[in-house]
């Protein structure tokens, strides 16, 4: 009971951090401004962060599922979903979309490292639970 709530809450919080962290806590680069000061275009990191909103929300929803469902088979499926969303959270900034070119830009210096850390935590935590549940369901 306790571990079910703790693990569900952990994934819910990590998912919300992936989704909302870049919007409020570790913001990416701003828009490129035109001569009149208006936002002329957005850089790649903006779209990476937009995609992370969806991935983080998915992880958070799966976390709510982990809080709600007790069935071992269902939880096995939920953990598999969480694991894949963690991997996706890692791939978006580093492989699938990417970010600004220079390492000193805010997205490369802070936003992506924070998303990397959160993605690794989600993948490790869910990977461990997936392994544990898989053994229990199979064995």
């Amino acid at each position: 009971m306790k571990s079910r709530i703790a693990s569900g809450l952990t994934i819910l919080i990590l998912g919300l951090l992936i989704s909302l962290g870049p919007q409020f806590l570790f913001k990416p680069c701003g828009p490129v401004l035109a001569h009149d000061g208006a936002a002329a275009s957005w850089m790649k990191c903006h779209w990476s962060v937009r995609a992370e909103i969806g991935v983080g929300a998915l992880a958070a929803a799966l976390g709510i599922g982990l809080l709600a469902f007790r069935s071992r088979d269902t939880r096995l499926g939920l953990w598999a979903g969480v694991f894949l969303s963690g991997v996706l959270a890692l791939l978006i900034p580093h492989v699938l979309i990417g970010g600004c070119a220079m390492a000193t830009m805010p997205c490369q210096a802070l936003t992506f490292p924070a998303l990397t850390l959160l993605g690794i935590l989600v993948a490790l935590f869910s990977g461990g639970n997936l392994f544990f549940h898989f053994r229990r369901v199979r064995g």
Binding site: T104, A109, P113, A114, L117
Partner: peptide, 13 residues
């Protein structure tokens, strides 16, 4: 390692 390696640039800044 998990905390310091990814935040290398941020720490230096």
């Amino acid at each position: 390692a998990l905390l310091i390696f990814p935040f290398n640039t941020y720490l230096s800044l």
